[in-house]
């Protein structure tokens, strides 16, 4: 068991690396697509994004992963396992992130957008300086769920020969037969990362809810100053 620990930790590091890479990819792509979906009112753009989201959210991740790695060679495109892994996880995650971002931006409301526009701000300025900052706090819980799901989904990368934690565990079991202790150890590793991640997200959420810049709450005293325009 203890002899196998470095072996598992090696897989764990691999898991973290793939998760981090795919997470960045998913957040960037999903953030971009969600913003475009919210801000651009052109039906071809909207249809393309809705199509992407619909396709990737409604098919199993493992099928998508197999297509990237085992399916594409059939069409003459051979992706390496790391590329297929990051791409597969990233696109799958991005489809969820897109929807979270779009919905959060929309929840800020038309009035806010119009208030920005009527000051003479450009549309991009309004999205970047009025809508996004107010939408972000609302995205955190959904994005955290997505990050947790993505980290768990890395366990399927073993199916395309990536030696992540779950595959390493199975390899260790096949030589030691200590299935229960090894699976429990692997489970604990996933658990630790995801719990840490969730706690971190909670703190971020609280900070954002407080306003982020420590504004002094002073609801009690309402200083009335005479009006002299």
């Amino acid at each position: 068991m203890v002899d196998n620990l470095p072996f598992l930790l090696n897989g764990f590091a691999m898991t973290l690396g793939y998760a981090a890479g795919a997470l960045v990819f998913a957040m960037l792509l999903g953030g971009l697509l969600g913003t475009v979906d919210y801000a651009v009112h052109l039906w071809p753009v909207r249809w393309a994004i809705r199509g992407f989201v619909g396709l990737f959210r409604n098919t199993p991740f493992i099928v998508q992963l197999y297509i990237w790695f085992f399916g594409l060679p059939y069409a003459g495109v051979q992706l390496s396992a790391p590329v297929a892994g990051i791409l597969g996880l990233g696109l799958y995650g991005a489809s969820y992130v897109t929807e979270i971002v779009r919905a959060s931006l929309a929840s800020v409301g038309r009035e806010q957008e119009e208030a920005g526009l009527s000051l003479g701000l450009g549309h991009r300025d309004v999205i970047a300086r009025v809508v996004w900052p107010q939408a972000f706090a609302g995205m955190v819980p959904g994005l955290t769920n997505e990050a947790v799901a993505l980290i768990k989904n890395t366990s399927m990368l073993g199916f395309i020969t990536i030696t992540e934690l779950t595959l390493r565990t199975q390899q260790a079991i096949s030589s030691t037969f200590a299935s229960l202790p090894l699976y429990l150890t692997a489970g604990a590793m996933y658990l630790i990362v995801n719990v840490l991640l969730t706690l971190l997200a909670r703190r971020l959420e609280k900070t954002l809810a407080r306003g982020g810049r420590g504004s002094a709450l002073n609801l009690g005293s309402r200083t009335e100053v005479p009006v002299h325009v």
Binding site: G109, E111, Q112, E114, A115, S118, G120, Q134
Partner: peptide, 11 residues
């Protein structure tokens, strides 16, 4: 400039 009924200050 326009100020509307729902003042919509940036929160």
């Amino acid at each position: 400039g326009l100020v509307s009924q729902k003042f919509a200050l940036f929160g």
